[in-house]
Simulated scan of single mutants.
Amino acid sequence: MTDAPTRFVQQATGARKAVRDHVIQILWSGYGEIVRYRLEGADVPTVILKHVVFPGDLDHPRGWNNDRSHQRKVGSYQVEMAWYRDGSGQCDASSRVPRCLDTATVGDEHLIVLEDLDAAGFPLRKEHLTRTEARQCLRWLARFHARFMGREPAGLWPEGSYWHLATRPDEWAAIEDPAIRETAAALDDALTGARYRSLVHGDAKVANFCFAPQGDAVAAVDFQYVGGGCGMRDVAYFLGSGLDEHEQETWETGLLEDYFQALREALNEHGKGAEADAIEHEWRALFPIAQADFYRFLVGWMPDHWKIHDYSRRTALAVVRRLQEGGLPGIPSGTDSSASATSSQ
Protein backbone atom coordinates (compact mmCIF):
# COMPACT_ATOMS: atom_id res chain seq x y z
CA MET A 1 0.00 0.00 0.00
CA THR A 2 1.40 3.41 -1.02
CA ASP A 3 1.98 5.80 1.88
CA ALA A 4 0.58 9.34 1.87
CA PRO A 5 3.89 11.19 1.08
CA THR A 6 4.55 8.90 -1.88
CA ARG A 7 1.00 9.38 -3.18
CA PHE A 8 1.46 13.13 -2.91
CA VAL A 9 4.74 13.01 -4.87
CA GLN A 10 3.03 10.94 -7.55
CA GLN A 11 0.13 13.38 -7.71
CA ALA A 12 2.41 16.44 -7.84
CA THR A 13 4.53 15.06 -10.67
CA GLY A 14 1.95 13.16 -12.66
CA ALA A 15 4.23 10.11 -12.45
CA ARG A 16 2.92 6.66 -13.15
CA LYS A 17 4.99 5.49 -10.18
CA ALA A 18 7.00 7.20 -7.43
CA VAL A 19 9.55 5.26 -5.40
CA ARG A 20 11.20 6.55 -2.25
CA ASP A 21 14.94 6.42 -2.92
CA HIS A 22 16.96 7.68 0.05
CA VAL A 23 17.01 10.27 2.80
CA ILE A 24 19.23 13.21 1.88
CA GLN A 25 19.00 14.95 5.23
CA ILE A 26 17.20 14.80 8.57
CA LEU A 27 15.81 18.25 9.33
CA TRP A 28 17.19 20.29 12.23
CA SER A 29 16.09 19.04 15.64
CA GLY A 30 14.31 16.05 14.10
CA TYR A 31 11.54 18.04 12.41
CA GLY A 32 11.25 15.69 9.46
CA GLU A 33 13.38 14.76 6.46
CA ILE A 34 14.38 15.60 2.90
CA VAL A 35 13.98 12.59 0.60
CA ARG A 36 14.76 11.90 -3.05
CA TYR A 37 12.10 10.04 -5.06
CA ARG A 38 12.64 8.19 -8.32
CA LEU A 39 9.84 8.57 -10.85
CA GLU A 40 8.45 6.51 -13.68
CA GLY A 41 6.30 8.05 -16.40
CA ALA A 42 7.09 11.66 -15.45
CA ASP A 43 8.85 14.57 -17.16
CA VAL A 44 11.84 14.26 -14.81
CA PRO A 45 13.59 11.18 -13.37
CA THR A 46 13.71 12.37 -9.76
CA VAL A 47 12.25 14.96 -7.38
CA ILE A 48 12.87 16.04 -3.80
CA LEU A 49 10.27 15.87 -1.03
CA LYS A 50 10.73 18.07 2.01
CA HIS A 51 8.53 16.37 4.59
CA VAL A 52 8.08 18.32 7.82
CA VAL A 53 6.74 16.45 10.85
CA PHE A 54 6.71 18.25 14.17
CA PRO A 55 8.21 16.05 16.91
CA GLY A 56 6.48 15.23 20.17
CA ASP A 57 9.70 15.74 22.14
CA LEU A 58 11.88 18.76 21.46
CA ASP A 59 15.55 17.92 20.94
CA HIS A 60 17.62 20.95 19.96
CA PRO A 61 21.28 20.10 19.21
CA ARG A 62 22.45 23.20 21.09
CA GLY A 63 20.12 22.78 24.03
CA TRP A 64 17.72 25.62 23.16
CA ASN A 65 14.61 23.55 23.82
CA ASN A 66 11.57 25.70 24.59
CA ASP A 67 8.24 26.67 23.11
CA ARG A 68 9.64 29.87 21.58
CA SER A 69 12.19 27.87 19.62
CA HIS A 70 9.51 25.39 18.55
CA GLN A 71 7.09 28.10 17.42
CA ARG A 72 9.87 29.79 15.45
CA LYS A 73 10.47 26.53 13.58
CA VAL A 74 6.74 25.99 13.01
CA GLY A 75 6.49 29.48 11.55
CA SER A 76 9.59 28.92 9.44
CA TYR A 77 8.09 25.95 7.62
CA GLN A 78 4.86 27.83 7.00
CA VAL A 79 6.93 30.68 5.54
CA GLU A 80 8.94 28.29 3.39
CA MET A 81 5.76 26.77 1.94
CA ALA A 82 4.45 30.26 1.15
CA TRP A 83 7.75 31.19 -0.50
CA TYR A 84 7.93 28.13 -2.73
CA ARG A 85 4.26 28.38 -3.61
CA ASP A 86 4.02 32.14 -4.27
CA GLY A 87 7.51 33.64 -4.56
CA SER A 88 10.03 31.19 -5.98
CA GLY A 89 8.55 31.31 -9.48
CA GLN A 90 9.69 34.94 -9.75
CA CYS A 91 13.34 33.89 -9.65
CA ASP A 92 15.12 33.23 -12.95
CA ALA A 93 18.44 31.68 -13.90
CA SER A 94 20.36 34.57 -12.33
CA SER A 95 18.96 33.77 -8.88
CA ARG A 96 18.30 30.08 -9.35
CA VAL A 97 16.12 28.17 -6.87
CA PRO A 98 14.42 24.77 -7.17
CA ARG A 99 11.11 24.82 -9.01
CA CYS A 100 8.19 24.02 -6.73
CA LEU A 101 5.84 21.34 -8.05
CA ASP A 102 3.30 21.32 -5.24
CA THR A 103 2.80 21.95 -1.51
CA ALA A 104 0.29 20.60 1.00
CA THR A 105 -0.45 20.69 4.71
CA VAL A 106 -1.98 17.56 6.21
CA GLY A 107 -2.68 17.96 9.90
CA ASP A 108 0.63 18.99 11.47
CA GLU A 109 2.68 17.79 8.50
CA HIS A 110 3.97 19.93 5.62
CA LEU A 111 4.85 18.47 2.22
CA ILE A 112 6.86 20.36 -0.42
CA VAL A 113 7.74 18.67 -3.72
CA LEU A 114 10.71 20.34 -5.39
CA GLU A 115 12.83 20.05 -8.48
CA ASP A 116 15.93 17.91 -7.91
CA LEU A 117 18.78 20.41 -8.33
CA ASP A 118 21.30 17.59 -8.70
CA ALA A 119 19.51 16.41 -11.84
CA ALA A 120 19.07 20.04 -12.98
CA GLY A 121 22.83 20.59 -13.13
CA PHE A 122 23.75 21.65 -9.60
CA PRO A 123 25.06 18.44 -7.97
CA LEU A 124 27.96 19.81 -5.96
CA ARG A 125 27.90 20.85 -2.29
CA LYS A 126 30.82 22.59 -0.60
CA GLU A 127 32.08 22.71 2.95
CA HIS A 128 34.76 25.25 2.14
CA LEU A 129 34.82 27.84 -0.64
CA THR A 130 37.46 29.23 -2.92
CA ARG A 131 37.37 32.95 -3.49
CA THR A 132 35.75 32.36 -6.89
CA GLU A 133 33.02 30.20 -5.33
CA ALA A 134 32.40 32.79 -2.62
CA ARG A 135 32.04 35.40 -5.35
CA GLN A 136 29.47 33.21 -7.12
CA CYS A 137 27.36 32.99 -3.97
CA LEU A 138 27.57 36.73 -3.36
CA ARG A 139 26.53 37.41 -6.94
CA TRP A 140 23.52 35.14 -6.36
CA LEU A 141 22.62 37.16 -3.25
CA ALA A 142 23.08 40.46 -5.09
CA ARG A 143 20.76 39.40 -7.91
CA PHE A 144 18.21 38.07 -5.41
CA HIS A 145 18.28 41.32 -3.43
CA ALA A 146 18.00 43.43 -6.59
CA ARG A 147 15.07 41.40 -7.94
CA PHE A 148 13.04 41.87 -4.76
CA MET A 149 14.20 45.39 -3.83
CA GLY A 150 11.28 47.26 -2.29
CA ARG A 151 9.07 44.17 -2.22
CA GLU A 152 6.75 43.74 0.76
CA PRO A 153 7.27 40.33 2.43
CA ALA A 154 3.65 39.19 2.11
CA GLY A 155 3.25 35.76 3.70
CA LEU A 156 6.92 35.72 4.70
CA TRP A 157 8.77 36.84 7.82
CA PRO A 158 8.31 40.62 8.27
CA GLU A 159 12.01 40.61 9.23
CA GLY A 160 13.95 37.84 7.54
CA SER A 161 16.87 35.79 8.98
CA TYR A 162 16.81 33.26 11.77
CA TRP A 163 19.10 35.14 14.14
CA HIS A 164 17.74 38.69 14.38
CA LEU A 165 17.14 40.10 17.85
CA ALA A 166 13.35 39.87 18.11
CA THR A 167 13.49 36.09 17.68
CA ARG A 168 16.34 35.57 20.16
CA PRO A 169 15.54 36.99 23.62
CA ASP A 170 16.94 33.92 25.41
CA GLU A 171 20.24 34.14 23.57
CA TRP A 172 20.34 37.91 24.20
CA ALA A 173 19.89 37.31 27.93
CA ALA A 174 22.76 34.81 27.89
CA ILE A 175 25.31 37.33 26.55
CA GLU A 176 28.02 37.83 29.16
CA ASP A 177 29.54 41.06 27.78
CA PRO A 178 27.37 43.95 29.02
CA ALA A 179 28.53 46.20 26.17
CA ILE A 180 27.25 43.73 23.57
CA ARG A 181 24.02 43.23 25.49
CA GLU A 182 23.37 46.95 25.95
CA THR A 183 23.95 47.91 22.32
CA ALA A 184 22.03 44.98 20.82
CA ALA A 185 18.84 46.97 20.21
CA ALA A 186 20.72 49.84 18.57
CA LEU A 187 22.33 47.42 16.12
CA ASP A 188 18.95 45.85 15.40
CA ASP A 189 17.25 49.24 15.03
CA ALA A 190 19.76 50.29 12.40
CA LEU A 191 19.19 47.16 10.33
CA THR A 192 15.42 46.97 10.66
CA GLY A 193 15.15 50.72 10.04
CA ALA A 194 17.07 50.69 6.76
CA ARG A 195 15.44 52.87 4.12
CA TYR A 196 16.21 50.35 1.38
CA ARG A 197 14.80 46.92 2.07
CA SER A 198 14.45 43.84 -0.07
CA LEU A 199 13.80 40.19 0.60
CA VAL A 200 16.65 38.38 2.31
CA HIS A 201 17.34 34.66 2.04
CA GLY A 202 17.69 34.53 5.81
CA ASP A 203 20.02 31.52 6.10
CA ALA A 204 22.64 32.13 3.41
CA LYS A 205 25.26 29.67 4.61
CA VAL A 206 27.55 27.57 2.42
CA ALA A 207 25.47 24.41 2.95
CA ASN A 208 22.47 26.08 1.34
CA PHE A 209 24.19 26.70 -2.00
CA CYS A 210 24.39 24.10 -4.78
CA PHE A 211 27.13 24.37 -7.41
CA ALA A 212 27.39 23.45 -11.08
CA PRO A 213 30.40 21.24 -11.94
CA GLN A 214 31.78 23.86 -14.33
CA GLY A 215 31.93 26.36 -11.46
CA ASP A 216 30.01 28.97 -13.42
CA ALA A 217 26.60 28.78 -11.73
CA VAL A 218 25.04 28.37 -8.30
CA ALA A 219 21.56 27.79 -6.92
CA ALA A 220 20.18 28.22 -3.40
CA VAL A 221 17.85 26.18 -1.20
CA ASP A 222 16.30 26.32 2.29
CA PHE A 223 13.98 29.33 2.50
CA GLN A 224 12.63 28.87 6.01
CA TYR A 225 13.74 32.36 7.06
CA VAL A 226 13.14 34.36 3.90
CA GLY A 227 11.58 37.74 4.59
CA GLY A 228 12.00 41.48 4.51
CA GLY A 229 15.23 43.20 5.41
CA CYS A 230 18.52 44.81 4.56
CA GLY A 231 20.64 42.64 2.25
CA MET A 232 23.64 43.11 4.53
CA ARG A 233 22.14 40.56 6.90
CA ASP A 234 22.70 37.90 4.23
CA VAL A 235 26.12 39.18 3.21
CA ALA A 236 27.53 39.48 6.73
CA TYR A 237 26.17 36.06 7.66
CA PHE A 238 27.50 34.43 4.50
CA LEU A 239 31.01 35.83 4.94
CA GLY A 240 31.00 35.16 8.67
CA SER A 241 29.88 31.57 8.32
CA GLY A 242 31.56 30.56 5.07
CA LEU A 243 35.14 31.78 5.42
CA ASP A 244 37.83 31.19 7.99
CA GLU A 245 39.34 34.10 9.88
CA HIS A 246 42.23 34.73 7.50
CA GLU A 247 40.05 34.53 4.41
CA GLN A 248 37.41 36.79 5.87
CA GLU A 249 39.93 39.46 6.84
CA THR A 250 41.89 39.37 3.58
CA TRP A 251 39.08 38.74 1.05
CA GLU A 252 36.30 40.80 2.59
CA THR A 253 36.98 44.13 0.87
CA GLY A 254 37.27 42.57 -2.58
CA LEU A 255 34.23 40.35 -2.12
CA LEU A 256 32.15 43.32 -1.03
CA GLU A 257 33.20 45.11 -4.21
CA ASP A 258 32.09 42.06 -6.20
CA TYR A 259 28.73 42.03 -4.40
CA PHE A 260 28.00 45.72 -4.96
CA GLN A 261 29.07 45.57 -8.60
CA ALA A 262 26.66 42.66 -9.14
CA LEU A 263 23.94 44.48 -7.20
CA ARG A 264 24.32 47.59 -9.35
CA GLU A 265 24.21 45.55 -12.57
CA ALA A 266 21.08 43.70 -11.43
CA LEU A 267 19.35 46.88 -10.26
CA ASN A 268 19.93 48.36 -13.71
CA GLU A 269 18.46 45.24 -15.32
CA HIS A 270 15.33 45.55 -13.17
CA GLY A 271 14.85 49.25 -13.87
CA LYS A 272 16.00 50.33 -10.41
CA GLY A 273 19.39 51.75 -11.36
CA ALA A 274 18.46 55.31 -10.40
CA GLU A 275 18.63 54.32 -6.74
CA ALA A 276 21.80 52.23 -6.98
CA ASP A 277 24.08 54.88 -5.49
CA ALA A 278 21.80 55.52 -2.52
CA ILE A 279 21.32 51.80 -1.86
CA GLU A 280 25.03 51.10 -1.96
CA HIS A 281 25.81 54.07 0.28
CA GLU A 282 23.33 52.95 2.92
CA TRP A 283 24.13 49.26 2.78
CA ARG A 284 27.92 49.75 2.89
CA ALA A 285 27.44 51.72 6.12
CA LEU A 286 25.23 48.95 7.50
CA PHE A 287 27.60 46.09 6.65
CA PRO A 288 29.79 46.38 9.82
CA ILE A 289 26.61 46.77 11.85
CA ALA A 290 25.28 43.51 10.41
CA GLN A 291 28.62 41.88 11.25
CA ALA A 292 28.38 43.11 14.83
CA ASP A 293 24.78 41.93 15.06
CA PHE A 294 25.70 38.43 13.88
CA TYR A 295 28.49 38.37 16.45
CA ARG A 296 25.93 39.43 19.08
CA PHE A 297 23.81 36.41 18.19
CA LEU A 298 26.73 33.99 18.26
CA VAL A 299 28.11 34.99 21.67
CA GLY A 300 24.67 34.48 23.21
CA TRP A 301 23.85 31.29 21.32
CA MET A 302 27.16 29.43 21.45
CA PRO A 303 30.11 31.47 22.74
CA ASP A 304 32.69 28.82 21.82
CA HIS A 305 31.54 28.51 18.19
CA TRP A 306 34.30 28.40 15.55
CA LYS A 307 32.75 31.40 13.77
CA ILE A 308 33.81 33.56 16.72
CA HIS A 309 37.44 34.55 16.24
CA ASP A 310 39.74 37.51 16.73
CA TYR A 311 38.72 39.29 13.52
CA SER A 312 34.97 38.97 14.12
CA ARG A 313 35.48 40.07 17.72
CA ARG A 314 37.56 43.11 16.77
CA THR A 315 35.09 44.12 14.08
CA ALA A 316 32.08 43.83 16.36
CA LEU A 317 33.66 45.55 19.33
CA ALA A 318 34.79 48.47 17.17
CA VAL A 319 31.15 49.07 16.21
CA VAL A 320 30.05 48.70 19.83
CA ARG A 321 32.64 51.23 21.01
CA ARG A 322 31.47 53.74 18.43
CA LEU A 323 27.91 53.29 19.66
CA GLN A 324 28.98 53.81 23.26
CA GLU A 325 30.93 56.93 22.32
CA GLY A 326 27.99 58.67 20.75
CA GLY A 327 26.37 56.47 18.17
CA LEU A 328 26.72 55.88 14.46
CA PRO A 329 25.02 57.87 11.70
CA GLY A 330 21.38 56.87 11.55
CA ILE A 331 21.52 54.80 14.75
CA PRO A 332 20.03 56.16 17.97
CA SER A 333 22.35 55.89 20.94
CA GLY A 334 21.30 54.91 24.43
CA THR A 335 18.46 52.68 23.27
CA ASP A 336 17.08 50.28 25.88
CA SER A 337 17.96 46.89 24.41
CA SER A 338 15.49 45.05 26.60
CA ALA A 339 12.61 46.54 24.64
CA SER A 340 13.51 44.77 21.40
CA ALA A 341 14.67 41.58 23.03
CA THR A 342 11.35 40.50 24.46
CA SER A 343 9.22 40.07 21.34
CA SER A 344 9.25 37.01 19.14
CA GLN A 345 7.97 36.04 15.75
Rank of each mutant, 00 (worst) to 15 (best):
N66S: 03
S76Q: 01
M232S: 00
R7C: 14
L165Q: 01
R147A: 07
A179F: 12
K126E: 11
S312G: 06
M302R: 10
G242K: 05
A212P: 12
A154S: 14
E265D: 12
I24T: 13
L138Y: 01
A207D: 13
T105W: 11
Y295A: 07
C210A: 08
R85A: 04
L267C: 05
V200E: 04
F54I: 09
G155N: 10
T13P: 02
G242D: 11
W283R: 00
A186Q: 12
A104M: 06
A179H: 14
L239V: 07
Q324G: 10
R264W: 09
D43N: 09
V19I: 14
D277I: 14
W306P: 12
R321H: 13
R62M: 09
V200H: 05
V9P: 06
Q261G: 14
I289Y: 07
R233G: 05
E280D: 06
L124N: 14
E127I: 13
W157Q: 07
V226A: 08
H309F: 12
S338P: 03
Y84N: 06
W83K: 02
T183M: 11
R143I: 05
D177P: 03
D189Q: 13
R16W: 09
A236R: 00
K272P: 07
R264P: 10
V320F: 00
Y311H: 13
H60I: 01
E40Y: 00
Y77E: 11
D43R: 14
L328I: 02
E33F: 02
E33K: 03
K307L: 11
I289C: 07
N208V: 10
W83F: 11
E325G: 05
K50C: 02
R314C: 08
A207T: 13
A190H: 02
A146Y: 13
I308Y: 01
T105R: 15
S94R: 10
L141W: 06
D216L: 09
P329C: 11
E176Q: 04
S344V: 15
L114Y: 00
I279E: 08
Y37R: 01
V53W: 06
M302T: 10
D43T: 12
Y162L: 11
R181W: 09
